[in-house]
Write a protein that binds this DNA or RNA. Sequence first.
DNA 1: GATGAATGAGTATTCATTCAT
DNA 2: AATGAATGAATACTCATTCAT
Lengths: 190, 190, 190, 190
Amino acid sequence: MGIQGNKKELIRQAAINIISKYGFYNTTTASIAEEAGVAVGTIYNYFTSKEGILEYIFAVELEKRISYLKKIAGKDKSIYEKIEFFLEKHFTEIKENPSLGRILVREKDFSRKKGNIAINEYLNKLPLLIEELLNKSIEEKALEPCNTYLISTALFGAIQGIVERAVGEDDFNMLNQASRELVKILRKGI
Amino acid sequence: MGIQGNKKELIRQAAINIISKYGFYNTTTASIAEEAGVAVGTIYNYFTSKEGILEYIFAVELEKRISYLKKIAGKDKSIYEKIEFFLEKHFTEIKENPSLGRILVREKDFSRKKGNIAINEYLNKLPLLIEELLNKSIEEKALEPCNTYLISTALFGAIQGIVERAVGEDDFNMLNQASRELVKILRKGI
Amino acid sequence: MGIQGNKKELIRQAAINIISKYGFYNTTTASIAEEAGVAVGTIYNYFTSKEGILEYIFAVELEKRISYLKKIAGKDKSIYEKIEFFLEKHFTEIKENPSLGRILVREKDFSRKKGNIAINEYLNKLPLLIEELLNKSIEEKALEPCNTYLISTALFGAIQGIVERAVGEDDFNMLNQASRELVKILRKGI
Amino acid sequence: MGIQGNKKELIRQAAINIISKYGFYNTTTASIAEEAGVAVGTIYNYFTSKEGILEYIFAVELEKRISYLKKIAGKDKSIYEKIEFFLEKHFTEIKENPSLGRILVREKDFSRKKGNIAINEYLNKLPLLIEELLNKSIEEKALEPCNTYLISTALFGAIQGIVERAVGEDDFNMLNQASRELVKILRKGI
DNA sequence: GATGAATGAGTATTCATTCAT
DNA sequence: AATGAATGAATACTCATTCAT
């Protein structure tokens, strides 16, 4: 099982490399197999379909984000500090693995097709968790009542937009100050 | 063809309907032709490729947005009012033509492929124009100096994120208050 | 009618230019029309099909060759002189209009398709007329009896082969001595 | 696949059957696949394109002809005997596989398009090898100096013309005496 | 006669997935 | 578990021809 896990992980990494380079549609299972150094058929021992690989990539990342948010939730910090902590984690991850960032903002639209559960989870659950964070703060009188639904949506959009731009211009410096700047706006506008 | 360009417009509309429904990749030229009530070949009398249709859709919308921004730029209003005006226009357009909204947030990722100029223009020029708006306000001492590059990127991302969610949940009510709410944040945070 | 004839000729010339350049299959009726400065529809007032244009090109050339052969047939010359005269005419024509030569050797294979009468006429009738020339010489005791069927076929093949090579190397100098050299072989071998 | 290359050979044979029957342009990959009893996709596991199949057919035949010529070159025979031997081999091959002959004379014109290397090789290299044979004979004083360039071109043209006619009339009897007759002409004219 | 917009049948090629070894 | 040859459905695009003006 240790070995099996290794191979699935091997394919996941290969897929990230190739998909971030060519896009999901232009990526063939053959090229993923080649990058991973396995036969095409082997992919299908670990994933049910090409789409399944992409789902898995998103699922792994969603898991990480959820764990960050859970970790923060309990802490004795202001809502702004909590958000900044989360953003910092997210942007750092992408700075360290730009290929992943590329996929996270660019391949999400593939989710439309059928019920691409994992990707939709990522796109829906993250804003939701941010919303919950805000709601809890309001309950605790640590934040004025506000339209948390819209704010969490806008914030998630802003995050994605910033990553999109970094990825598009292949310049990840913007991500260094992004979390602080974004939170500054949340604190007192521009 | 009595009216010039009628047929190109006919195809554009048909394409919006079909692409918003199935996604660009799952849309066949045959289905666009059928929706438009023309032969496949006719499409190619007005567009050079299937991709060209999508480009044209984006180009038309970009044109509209640019004209809004030009109209506002000259007006004697605060930066916040200007942004709200622009957002209002954008969200209204999408409420009235949700199919278009769907395409505007979902099919942009197709732009990666080659030099999909029109789509990249839409994605790059709009943030840029917002940035210019902010810069001008700073010059005119109507706004405190700030990271306009990041803010315009975040704002454009927030806009896209909100449309994405409305489109995803097929509920466009959020768009009614979105412009006001977003500007409220820009004014004084959450 | 003078005018009508002009336009048909105009299209024939345009077709020769374009077909020799791109080959018959890669030539579109649109490009012929453009080269001729007429509308596509106009072509169909003078020809029943694209194929019909090619047929006409061959028919015109066949007519010329037949008239040469008729002219020679009556003359008081040796069979070798007669053949040389014919070859000279043929090669000269091609030197002066290489585009035509290109078509004459390269587009013949299109004839297979259906009953491309004119092209088959060119390919069949010319060897036949040479054969008749030879047969008449034998009757007149001016030539030893021989396999005129095979010889005329081989001679026509040799002619085509020489033009093919000139056309392929885009060097028409070979054609200057070709008629003399070929007849020399017919006279006494190599 | 027990025997290596079986499938490529299977497809080559099927392609010869179909192409000789309908011509290259009128042959669909689907029909080749059907004739070969494989799926269309399988063709593309062995050839890069439809055109590639035709190239391969020519390449195989060129190889055979080259080996004949090499075999003769060393022998202690007169130039006429050598040529006759080669012609005999060529014509026999075509008598035994008329489909192949059809392709060899009819589909060569496809070569124009791009760099259809194999077909051009066939058309260029064969005359060249004949020319070399003649040149060597001249060097060895076994043949009078003559325009070997033109003669080899004419001879190759004659060969092609004879096959063309046999193929056109679907009567391969002519090929029985063709080599002897042609060499007779080369020896002492008609 | 001239035009050229509209037509739509026709086809090479790709590639995710399978399954016998 | 691993392999990779075989599969065949799916689709953008072309272009000869027509015909209403």
